[in-house]
Amino acid sequence: MTMTTPNSVSACARAVTKEEAAYRIDYPLAYARSTRVVALDETAEKTVRSVAGGPWGQAQFYTASDSGEELITLDGQRRPMVMEIEHSDSVIMVATNSIVSTAAASVGAACRERSIMTAGLLLLDAGALDGDALSALRPYARILLVPADEEDLFELLKAIRA
């Protein structure tokens, strides 16, 4: 095997050194995500409320009505679900074994029609996984965390720069 001698900065041998890595342009990343976090039942709402106080950019937090056709802001305003997700690029659905399946289906289907990325978190603080809850959420969540907890939601939002 003949080893080549790198003759430019773009050659991997130089470009991937620690010294060259330090020259990666340092500029602030804009908040790229317009995220909606939707609690799908009352228990999940407590977790969503707890996390909502974090240092988020454009993330907005709601509880879904039972039909899912409305999203209720944390200060109680009822808004049409479709309008609220229309300009988002990711929707995170948070649920427990008490999930309101009609709400999941309504929000999930609206996201699918609009090609909006979805994630689902099934919170199981103490109880075992309920197959019905999983079935209600699975078809609509591109990525599903089972079981999940409040820290999972926080870390997910932080990682995607919500």
Partner: peptide, 20 residues
């Protein structure tokens, strides 16, 4: 993975939900 540099600067990442 090596092209990221010997230790990638994760503050510059832009992860997505499928990176869960």
């Amino acid at each position: 993975q090596e092209s990221m540099g010997p230790t990638v600067d994760r503050t510059k990442e832009r992860l997505v939900a499928t990176d869960a």
